[in-house]
Simulated scan of single mutants.
Amino acid sequence: MSNIYGISHKGTFGGVMDLFDWKTTSINESATIHEALTVLDQQAMQIVLMVSEDNRLLGTVTDGDIRRGLLRGETLDSPVDTVANQTPTVGYDDETEIVWQQHIKRKSLRHLPILNRRKQLVGLYYHKTQQTPRRKNPVVLMLGGLGMRLRPLTETVPKPMLPLGNQPILETIVKHIAEQGFTEFYFCINYLGDKIRSYFGDGSDWGVRINYVEEPKPLGTAGALSLLPASVRDADKPMVVMNGDLLTKIDFRSLLDFHQSHGNCITTCVREYSHQVPYGVVELQESTISQLVEKPTYRYFVNAGIYCLSPQAVDSVPAGQFYDMPELIKAQMAKGTKMGGFPLAEYWMDIGHIPDYEQAQADYEIFFK
């Protein structure tokens, strides 16, 4: 039996409404966290339902559940039930929509699984807001890199403008961020920046405002922050900073909320990375073997190239100098300021090499169409 399955129960109950077919959002209890992430990435419902073979609801999983699990030491290969909410709030098919809405409002939920009185799933109710609230936080995209590792593709095209599906990588990024209510963009450009400016203009075609920050020379992944207008650098709002060669479905609203609720100076998005050593690893204490581990797998959190910065961090970037984000993070750590890691529970791909670009082309058809 597959780990990802579901049965359609779409229909009208008591003349109330049509329920969302939960088939594509369901997994069984033997699935892994990675499989739950696949469902989250491919669907737009922001929830996964853990369901038994007889269609009983065993739990629910959101990106926040996965993020909290990763922070406490779970891995993507861990069973999904280690992060699932096994006592979710539910509604019943013989209740009215008003009752369902009361459940959602009382618990501040996005979704409400609907069961029959035999505890079997029959649908998924969700409250869709009419308009995404606008976020005034600036979004800074670092777009000035030379793209050397993607040559010859980037000899005449800046890396963010390489085609992905029927549009440039950067357009996919902008659309995803704009859909979450962000409208104030700053494009930091250098190499072939005129091609980016010519394509995007002032951003009005995408319902956003794009401001351009021209680097007189390459300034690294953080140096261009010193060129932002003083009104932006001195504002009291944290900003999102992202490398322009990333393909991701991260929820930037959750990142900002995490950053502010934890009181961080810098929050760095991190991604789990695992590496299996193809040999037996020998651990020595002086000349004595203390342990022998055959082909162990080591897991790490790696920097995902997406950040949330408070004004004090932005203000500390040296003016007009080459400066990378790791240098900024280390400098703030040396001052004892609070730093945070935000584990990505969503799709993420660093398009750094040609094989990555080829993989992103395939992924685009799955996750972004």
Rank of each mutant, 00 (worst) to 15 (best):
L70I: 10
A224M: 15
T172D: 07
W22Q: 07
E97D: 08
I351K: 00
D63T: 01
A304K: 01
P163Q: 14
S2K: 11
V39M: 06
L141T: 00
T24Y: 13
P88M: 08
T337E: 11
C265V: 14
E365C: 05
D236E: 15
D251V: 04
T62I: 13
D81L: 14
Q285R: 12
L76V: 03
D21S: 03
A222V: 10
A360K: 00
Q86G: 06
V51P: 00
V302P: 00
K335L: 15
I177M: 05
P229K: 07
L246I: 15
K335Y: 08
D41N: 14
Q42T: 04
S108K: 14
S8G: 12
Y126N: 11
Y279A: 14
G59E: 07
T62Y: 11
G73P: 10
S310V: 04
T221I: 15
V99C: 06
L153H: 15
K338C: 10
N190G: 05
H9I: 04
D356V: 00
R56C: 14
L112H: 04
T132R: 08
I7R: 05
G73A: 10
S316N: 07
N55F: 14
E286G: 08
F368T: 04
E346G: 00
T154V: 09
Y298A: 04
F200E: 08
F367M: 01
P163F: 06
T12W: 08
I114S: 00
L146G: 02
T248L: 06
L256K: 08
K295E: 13
L164W: 02
T12C: 12
T25P: 00
Y191H: 13
G207Q: 04
Q180L: 05
R271A: 05
C265W: 01
T154Q: 09
I66Y: 04
T156V: 08
P229M: 06
S30I: 05
